[in-house]
Design a protein around this nucleic acid. Structure first.
Length: 407
RNA sequence: GCGCCGGUCGGAUAGCGGCUAUUCCAGGAGACUGUAAAUCUCCGGCCUCACGGCAUCGUUGGUUCGAGUCCAACCCGGCGCA
């Protein structure tokens, strides 16, 4: 019997796709919608597991590519698997390495990221032309992707089968199919080719997963791609929903891709109106508070994002009235906490002036305290949104929050 | 008092007589969305600082087409000798 189960508790209705539910895994429940905290290399940067848990985190996502390179998936397995290794007793997920196809490939050293401001037409064509001399650490082949390790220059060929094998060794509760996250600067023809590849890889991922999942403890999510094109997104949602190997389908879904900000909500809407309602949907790599409201309203159950920890380490801190740069002059003498009514460890114990001092002094604790607050802020925001779905107050909450936050 | 060495941005530095005086740190601002990120980018003399223009290398002179760079005197600092 599978240890994975998704139950919808409450739907918002009113023309939205929003719902609140519970996801059961071998390592405990996740109340959804939920914000998944990213711990790429088997650690949430600058935080220990107690700090991660105390910030309200329910589930941690690590990365297949990084752990495969170092310390190696066999080593992780020997240490008892991802959760045991990092002393995190709750649910875990691993990303397939598909994002690194993008971040170390088409996006490498090009200033293109997960969410881009707009799709600049001048960027659209040349990208595919200078393929030969464009530096990239990931190159897409017929069967999979060859990666040049940023650590030692060694070359590794990752296929869908390999990604799934690695992920089974890592031992997370929820794993993802190997996909190609495309750049929004690619043209339609390329998006079509890439999507065909992603679908092919999805089927192979599912097939390999079935072989390795005899105990039925691990859930596999398929990933929908398709760029900004409605037809491709819908085709992808349909394919990933229906693809079946040996009578088995995906347990849930990821929605992937690098987005122009304005394209994100349409893509999510197209996809989630097609994906089966009774399985969880994960919007990969998102996001900012306004994106969380958007996603949840459009039927997303899970989000993961590096922002709370990356911004925290870099001195940017979330507040209900927008983000602040804690190193700015004005905070050097501000002895109030980041937020007076925040229940996080950082706000209950420290002032902005102290945080500012820690950052200026390059003290390690700076990134830790800022990350604690940022993680708490986003995890707690999603919890509040979840409650507002149950209470039927989603729109009031969204309006009051975003009015202050976006100013 | 004599001799030697040295004075370049807030600090530390680079700078064959020739182009926009270098780099690091500090300071200021910004960026970051399935993490090659405790990282990266930009700004830091003046003039309506965008364009363009004018300054500036302890001070004052000098040599030179041209001086941060060479010369002299002076001022300051360090070391040595009295």
């Amino acid at each position: 019997m599978s240890s994975f189960k998704f139950t919808i508790q409450s739907k918002l209705g009113g023309g939205t796709l929003a719902r609140a539910g519970v996801l059961e895994t071998a390592h405990g429940q996740i109340e959804t919608p939920a914000f998944v905290v990213v711990g790429t290399k088997g650690t949430v940067k600058s935080l220990n597991p107690e700090q991660v848990r105390d910030a309200g985190t329910q589930v941690v996502l690590a990365n297949t590519y990084h752990l495969y390179l170092q310390p190696g998936d066999e080593a992780v397995k020997k240490m008892g698997g991802l959760g045991k290794m990092m002393n995190w007793s709750g649910p875990t997920m691993t990303d397939s390495g598909g994002f690194q196809v993008f971040s170390l490939g088409a996006a490498y050293k090009k200033g293109i990221s997960k969410v881009v401001q707009t799709v600049d037409p001048s960027l659209l064509i040349p990208e595919r032309f200078d393929d030969s001399d464009a530096p990239r650490l990931a190159k897409i082949g017929q069967d999979g992707v060859s990666f040049t390790s940023h650590l030692d220059g060694s070359v590794h060929y990752i296929t869908p089968e390999k990604s799934i094998q690695i992920q089974h060794n890592l031992g997370a509760d929820i794993i993802f199919a190997f996909d190609e996250c495309t750049s929004p600067t690619e043209d339609l023809k390329y998006q079509e080719e890439a999507l065909e590849r992603t679908h092919n890889w999805a089927r192979r991922s599912l097939e390999e997963h079935n072989k390795l999942n005899s105990e039925n403890k691990v859930a596999l999510f398929g990933i929908v791609q398709g760029g900004r094109e409605e037809r491709l997104r819908k085709d992808s949602a349909k394919f990933i929903s229906e693809v079946e190997v040996d009578g088995k389908k995906f347990d849930g879904f990821g929605i992937g891709g690098s987005f122009a900000k304005e394209d994100m909500s349409t893509a999510v809407k197209w996809v989630n109106s097609i994906l089966p309602e009774d399985k969880p949907r994960h919007l990969l790599g998102i996001g900012e508070p306004e994106d969380l409201f958007m996603g949840i309203e459009n039927g997303v159950d899970l989000f993961d994002c590096v922002l709370p920890t990356r911004l925290g380490r870099n001195g940017t801190i979330y507040t209900k009235t927008g983000k602040i740069h804690i190193m700015n002059t004005e905070f050097r003498t501000d002895i109030s906490p980041i937020e007076n009514d925040c229940e996080c460890y950082t706000c209950k114990n420290y002032s902005k002036a102290y945080l500012s001092h820690l950052f200026h002094g390059k003290e390690m604790l700076a990134g830790t305290l800022a990350s604690i607050h940022n993680v708490y802020f986003l995890v707690n925001l999603v919890k509040q949104i979840r409650q507002s779905i149950i209470d039927g107050t989603f729109f009031e909450f969204k309006k009051s929050f975003l009015e202050k936050y976006l100013k």
